[in-house]
Amino acid sequence: MISLKPVYSSADQAVADIFEGATIMVAGFARPGVPQELVKALIRKGVGKLTVIANAAHGTREDLADAGRLVAAGLVRKVITSFPAPTRASVEGYPEKLYRQGKLEVETVPQGTLSERIRAGGIGLGGFWVRTGVGTVFEEGKEKRLFNGQEHILERPLRADFALLRARVADALGNLVYDKAQRNFNPTMAMAAAVTIVEVDEVVEPGGLDSESIATPGIFIDRIVKAQSG
């Protein structure tokens, strides 16, 4: 028996059970792969004290409903990210502002370590040893070990209560096909949350996707939302 995933026509319904204090992964790298309608729905819901895990979180792009806009909306207590600030040094991002006011905890993580911690969380690893960050502030408080004569630090996995994802097309089994650079954090976040919600341009019947092109198998997906816009 093939299990079909629920397809929501409303992003608001799809995020209705996200609770105060939840840990949320939000996919995307700049604009590609950002689940903008789900983020907007979460902002409308207004649930607070969230821990947000995302590549970027500065929230200074008002034309982009990304993880940073949750920070800008004051819904976030802690952010785990590799870009807490806008790339332009002259612009102050929301994390900086709120961090200075003592209203936000910011954990900055090297991008590759961030994606691998999410992957480790999704594939059942207790952690991994990595050279990234050795000899820098990122080694502070972490276990160290030599492999092949090189120092490595132990990094721990990340998991979330919910992951908000974006793909181009899903079939009703939850299989996902992405568009070009849209993958970024989506396939790994899909594995690392208790409930995964994906927003797509198009939903097709089971069997309607080319099996060779599926980048995220349906086992990782719980809910599908048909996006109203691109």
């Binding site: 590799s82 870009f83 807490p84 600030a85 790339t87 040094a89 991002g93 994390p95 900086e96 961090y99 200075r100 910011v106 900055t108 993580v109 090297p110 991008q111 590759g112 370590t113 990595v130 050279r131 990234t132 960050g133 050795v134 820098t136 990122f138």
Partner: peptide, 16 residues
């Protein structure tokens, strides 16, 4: 002086 910095992929490149 900024207190917060963007690490991005630079540290992984430096290591790898």
């Amino acid at each position: 002086s900024r207190g917060i910095g963007n690490i991005g992929g630079a540290m992984d490149l430096a290591a790898g």
